[in-house]
Amino acid sequence: MTSVTSTDGTIIDYDRSGDGPPLILVDGAFCSRSFGPMPALAPLLTKHFMVYLYDRRGRGRSGNTQPYAVEREIDDIEALIDAAGGSAHLYGVSSGAVLAMRATAALPGKVRRLAVYEPPLVVDKSRPLPPADYRQRVDDMLANGRNGDVVKFFMTKVVNGPAFLGVIMPLMPVWSKLKAVAPTLPYDLAILGDVMRGEPIPEEYRKVLANIDVPTLVGDGGKSPAWMHNGVQAVADAIGQTRRITLPGQTHQVKAGAIAPALIDFFTAEAI
């Protein structure tokens, strides 16, 4: 394990393994380099890339300097890119996909290629929408130490998971990990911004996508719901150089063995 120091002095801890062009993996909500999809994915990529698996700020061994701002998470990625030699590929999943897209747009010349899987944009009314005040409700629950309620609320009311999740999740082995990292959920909600209202991509975010000027892979799962497909397609349509894929049989919890070949093919191909 090693670390870099971000612009505001925050220590960002990471693991590095493999050989080849640098590839930074960007986690979504509740995940870290020891929990979530990336720990299983990284070993499948190391024959082709120097893989950087890091803890986003507030998670694992990384620091958590306040006040938080999305720009600081982009600074964190830039510090990792600089440590990798000044340029790198990025792969992000879920809200981490949105962070990776924001970083690519904000760091011209530093991202070689970008791959994203299921950025969770709700651009139509094909699913129930989150409560209008969901971000404030998350903040209020955290302020009162109700980390477990935050996890349940997010899984059932924001991402629209089945109601029984709120009952069974406290019985699962991962419950303590989810509660521990719950205070970073507002970071992911800030990264997402105003993209879950069931309306077309807002202008602020459309400008971000328009500023992505590198080859980009945009993917989703064949078993994911219609609202996810529609949001992912809206992202693909708004970015210039795009390869669009759907992985058969996959959901938002994409399996490492399913996404790894697509990433290897995309990041090593001469053209998209």
Rank of each mutant, 00 (worst) to 15 (best):
A83P: 08
D149P: 03
A105P: 10
V123Q: 07
P22Y: 13
A226K: 15
T184Q: 00
R33T: 02
E270A: 14
P67I: 04
P108W: 06
Q136L: 07
R61A: 15
V51K: 07
P183M: 00
A182S: 00
L192D: 01
R137M: 12
D13K: 10
A69V: 08
P200E: 01
L121K: 14
L45F: 11
L53S: 06
T7S: 13
R72L: 13
D220N: 15
Q250S: 09
P186D: 00
I168S: 01
E71I: 04
V51T: 09
M38E: 08
P131A: 08
K179F: 01
R243P: 01
H48W: 11
A97T: 03
V235R: 03
L44H: 01
Y52P: 12
H229D: 05
L99E: 04
D19I: 13
A163T: 14
V98K: 09
A269R: 05
Y14R: 09
S6Y: 05
P173E: 06
L171Y: 11
V232G: 05
G58F: 00
Y187C: 11
K223L: 15
N211E: 14
V174S: 14
S6F: 01
N147Q: 12
T65F: 06
A40M: 12
R127F: 05
T216W: 06
I259V: 15
L209S: 12
R137E: 13
Q250P: 09
A210W: 01
I24G: 00
F35H: 08
A256T: 06
G60L: 02
L90V: 07
F164W: 14
N160V: 15
R56E: 07
K255F: 08
G96N: 04
S126G: 08
F49L: 08
L263P: 07
A271S: 15
R127C: 12
